[in-house]
């Protein structure tokens, strides 16, 4: 009952976070043509690269679910293995994002260049920051699985971490569609 309340509260938190993203999406959509003579999305974005990032995140969501299944079956080793895989995939995603950002900056497409680039870096960067938080949380969850028995409080905490991770995946799908998809194809 108490853990169910916590999960419900966490869902509400996720909705508030979603509103923050909604504001950032709206900002991006309003400013995406304001390139001020600088590069546009069509010049910069590579849909293939973004697809690779997307596949990494989607796979990590899948492995995260496998970890949750093992936790419910009380298989600690399996859970730790799948969470580690999820963690590595998450780090790989961040590395790709880092490469992408540094390439843009190297080409002179910095966040100071135009309203479009400011809103792009803010939206995608905020997502990246959330991913970093999720990775930190995953480390803490790994420690918890290693140190504590898999009882209700632990399971509830790890479940919320998994919810957070899926939520970030969900947001990324919109980033992929709105920023990269519409930015290169439309």
């Amino acid at each position: 009952m108490e853990n169910e309340t916590k999960v419900f509260g966490f869902w509400i938190y996720l909705m508030t976070d979603l509103i923050i993203f909604a504001v950032l999406f709206a900002t991006f959509i309003v400013l995406h043509n304001n390139t001020f003579g600088g590069p546009s999305g069509r010049d910069l974005f590579s849909l293939r690269f973004a697809l690779a990032e997307t596949l990494l995140l989607l796979t990590s969501s899948f492995t995260c679910t496998l970890a949750m299944l093992d936790i419910h079956r009380e298989k600690k080793k399996g859970a730790i293995f799948w969470l580690l895989v999820t963690f590595v995939l998450g780090v790989a995603f961040l590395v790709l994002e880092w490469i992408e950002f540094s390439e843009f900056i190297h080409e002179g497409a910095t966040w100071q260049r135009s309203g479009f680039l400011s809103s792009y870096f803010t939206l995608v960067g905020t997502h990246g920051l959330h991913i970093s938080t999720g990775l930190l949380w995953m480390l803490v969850a790994l420690f918890r699985i290693g140190l504590r028995p898999l009882l209700a409080p632990s399971i509830s905490k790890i479940f919320r971490m998994a919810l957070f991770w899926h939520f970030l995946d969900f947001v990324w799908i919109f980033i992929f569609t709105v920023v990269y998809g519409m930015g290169t194809l439309l």
Partner: peptide, 24 residues
């Protein structure tokens, strides 16, 4: 989110609400 955007503008020199550089 809004005050964060304003702060980013002030701290990192981004352009959301400026007249130049394609803000709105």
């Amino acid at each position: 989110a809004t005050t964060l955007l304003l702060w980013l503008e002030r701290f990192f020199d981004l352009h959301f609400f400026t007249a130049s550089f394609g803000g709105n």
